[in-house]
Simulated scan of single mutants.
Amino acid sequence: MQWSFLFLSLAATSTALIRFQCSQLVTQRLDPLVTPGMIPSPHVHQIVGGNSFNATMDPKKDMPGESDCTTCQMADDFSNYWTAVLYFKARNGTYKRVRQLANSGFDGAAGGGMTVYYMQDALYDTKQPSKVSAFQPGFRMFIGNVQARTMDEAARFRQLTYTCLETPATRDHETIALPKKVCPAGIMSSLRFPNCWDGKNLDSPDHLSHMSYPSSGTFESGGPCPSTHPVRTSQVMFEVIWDTRPFNNPDDWPLDGSQPFVWSFGDATGYANHADYVFGWKDDSLQKILDTPCYVNCDTARTQSIAEMNKCAQKAVVEEDIDGWLTELPGGHQAEFAPTPEKR
C-alpha cells in the first residue's frame, strides 16, 4: 500500500522521550501480522495494548482504534505490541511457560506485560533534540529473523538483545544469544525497532523493508537515515522481563550444562528473538507528545493507573494448554539449535 504525507510537523522542535508499562492483554497463538487470519498461528505470543487485537487486523476494517480499552499506561495508545513467549525445558524433556515480571516501578501490572519506549535520541540523552514524525494510521512493522540459529544469521538484528539480571536494576552486558548462566533476577529481552521510514509505505511484504536503521553509525550515536528511508521516527523499544527464577536450580538444567530456555517456536539459541508492532494511537496524540519537551513523564499525555490498565483484558480464542508441563511446545515445536523452517 502506498501513501504520501506532508510532514509539516517535522518543522517543530521535538524533545520528548516516553516510557510506560503495558499489562498483558492475552497470551495465545495468534499473529495478525505474519500469519493474518490463521487460527491458530504457528507459535504462542504474548500481546499487550488495545483490546481490538484479532487474527486479521485488517487496516481497512479493524484498526486498533476500534479498541474501547488499552492495557497500556498511555490512555490514548491503542496500539498492539507482541513478542514470542519463553519456555523452560526440563531435564526430562518437558516444557513449562516462563512468566513475566513487571519492570521496576510498575509492580502489579497484570501478567507482567512489557515496558514500551518511544525515543527520539539515545535513552541517556535527556534533551532528546532530534525532530521526528509519529507513525500514521495503518502503520505496522516487524523486527527479527524467526529462522536465525547462528550469530551470522542474527547479525542484522544486533538491536535485539538479552540482559542476565543480577538484580532488577542490571542494564549492562547485553548479549544476542540467550544467557548461558543462571540469572538471579530473571532475563530481560530488549527489542529496538528501526527508526527510519521510507515515508510512503505503511507496511511491506516482509513488514520490515519500509523501515531502516541509520545508514551509518547507530540510533544511539545519531546516525543519519539513508536516502531511501529519509523520514526519522521515534525508535520504539520493548523491554520484557522473563521470570526465570523458578527455574534457576542447575540440577534441573540439561546434563551437558547448556542453557534450558527456548522460545515458543523452538529456538533454543535466542538468535531468533523478534517482535511485532501495529500502530494505534488516537488521533494525533503521539505527535503532540513528541512535540512537547518532556522526559519519561510527560504532562501532556493522558495516562491511566495500573488498576485501570489491568481491567482491559481479552479472552483467548485459541483454547489449548500453554501453561502446564508440556511434552512439546504448542504448535508441535521442539527445542532445536540447527536452522529449520518454521511449521506453517
Rank of each mutant, 00 (worst) to 15 (best):
P184Y: 06
A185M: 07
G186D: 02
G186Y: 00
S189P: 11
L191M: 11
P194G: 08
N195T: 13
W197A: 00
W197R: 01
D198W: 02
D198L: 03
D198N: 13
G199E: 09
G199Q: 04
N201V: 08
P205Y: 09
P205F: 09
D206F: 13
H207N: 15
H207V: 12
L208Y: 15
S209H: 01
H210P: 04
M211Q: 11
M211N: 06
Y213T: 05
P214M: 04
P214G: 09
P214V: 03
P214T: 07
S215P: 09
S215F: 14
S216V: 11
T218Y: 15
T218H: 15
G223H: 06
C225P: 04
C225W: 00
P226Y: 10
P226E: 03
S227T: 11
T228C: 10
P230M: 02
V231A: 03
R232C: 02
S234M: 08
Q235N: 07
Q235R: 15
Q235I: 12
M237H: 13
E239P: 07
E239N: 15
E239R: 15
T244E: 03
N249A: 14
N249D: 15
D251N: 14
D252L: 10
W253Q: 08
W253M: 11
P254V: 01
P254W: 00
P254H: 01
Q259V: 08
Q259I: 05
P260I: 01
F261G: 00
V262D: 00
G266I: 00
G266A: 08
D267M: 03
A268R: 11
T269W: 05
T269Q: 06
G270I: 02
Y271D: 06
N273Y: 07
H274G: 04
D276F: 05
Y277A: 07
V278Y: 04
W281S: 01
K282W: 12
